[in-house]
Simulated scan of single mutants.
Amino acid sequence: MPARFKMSRKGVGQLLRSPGVQAEMLRRAETTKSVAVSLSPVDEGGPHPGQYRASWSVKSTARGGRRRDRATATVSNSAYYARWMEYGTERVRARHVLLRAAQVGGRR
């Protein structure tokens, strides 16, 4: 006789918000942050040397996602020019620091 499975939406929701899932999300975000810090360029002759590298942060919550129903962790950079570093401008090439860090950090 084949096995039967009946999914419990409540149970899946509890799993997605569980401390274990939240800890794993935070671990992956911290790994991604450390890779981003190592990839961050520093312009020693610029007006804010090292600000971009020092501005990386991680935050975690058990109620994240579009529906606020799962554990999430977010890596961000608070430097005012972080967007330009990531995506570039018409005069400055894109560095894609967070993209590259997420690609490497997600595998570890």
Rank of each mutant, 00 (worst) to 15 (best):
residue 87 Y to T: 06
residue 33 K to S: 04
residue 23 A to V: 01
residue 61 T to F: 08
residue 36 A to S: 08
residue 21 V to N: 00
residue 35 V to C: 06
residue 101 A to P: 01
residue 102 A to I: 03
residue 21 V to M: 04
residue 96 H to P: 00
residue 35 V to Q: 02
residue 66 R to G: 10
residue 2 P to F: 12
residue 69 D to R: 11
residue 55 S to C: 07
residue 62 A to S: 15
residue 56 W to M: 11
residue 73 A to V: 08
residue 59 K to L: 10
residue 46 G to K: 01
residue 10 K to L: 07
residue 6 K to L: 07
residue 69 D to H: 10
residue 67 R to I: 03
residue 47 P to S: 04
residue 87 Y to I: 03
residue 59 K to A: 13
residue 60 S to N: 07
residue 77 N to G: 08
residue 16 L to H: 06
residue 81 Y to M: 11
residue 3 A to K: 09
residue 48 H to M: 04
residue 96 H to G: 01
residue 41 P to C: 05
residue 63 R to T: 13
residue 64 G to I: 11
residue 7 M to R: 10
residue 91 R to P: 00
residue 50 G to M: 06
residue 20 G to S: 10
residue 100 R to E: 14
residue 56 W to G: 07
residue 18 S to H: 05
residue 98 L to V: 05
residue 35 V to T: 06
residue 104 V to K: 15
residue 24 E to P: 00
residue 69 D to W: 05
residue 16 L to K: 15
residue 66 R to W: 08
residue 38 S to E: 12
residue 17 R to W: 00
residue 57 S to I: 05
residue 102 A to Q: 10
residue 45 G to R: 09
residue 11 G to A: 12
residue 76 S to P: 05
residue 73 A to G: 01
residue 39 L to M: 14
residue 105 G to V: 00
residue 70 R to K: 14
residue 52 Y to M: 12
residue 47 P to K: 01
residue 87 Y to P: 00
residue 1 M to Y: 06
residue 74 T to L: 12
residue 90 E to K: 15
residue 69 D to A: 12
residue 89 T to K: 10
residue 67 R to P: 00
residue 108 R to V: 05
residue 94 A to I: 04
residue 31 T to C: 06
residue 22 Q to D: 01
residue 49 P to G: 03
residue 64 G to H: 09
residue 74 T to E: 14
residue 18 S to L: 05
residue 105 G to M: 01
residue 12 V to M: 15
residue 34 S to L: 03
residue 35 V to L: 08
residue 42 V to H: 09
residue 14 Q to Y: 02
residue 2 P to Y: 14
residue 90 E to L: 13
residue 67 R to A: 13
residue 95 R to Q: 15
residue 44 E to H: 14
residue 97 V to L: 02
residue 62 A to G: 15
residue 11 G to K: 03
residue 18 S to I: 03
residue 107 R to I: 06
residue 81 Y to H: 10
residue 81 Y to I: 14
residue 63 R to N: 15
residue 46 G to M: 07
residue 42 V to R: 09
residue 18 S to Q: 04
residue 82 A to T: 02
residue 80 Y to V: 15
residue 60 S to L: 11
residue 87 Y to F: 12
residue 35 V to R: 01
residue 15 L to R: 09
residue 21 V to Y: 00
residue 33 K to I: 13
residue 7 M to D: 08
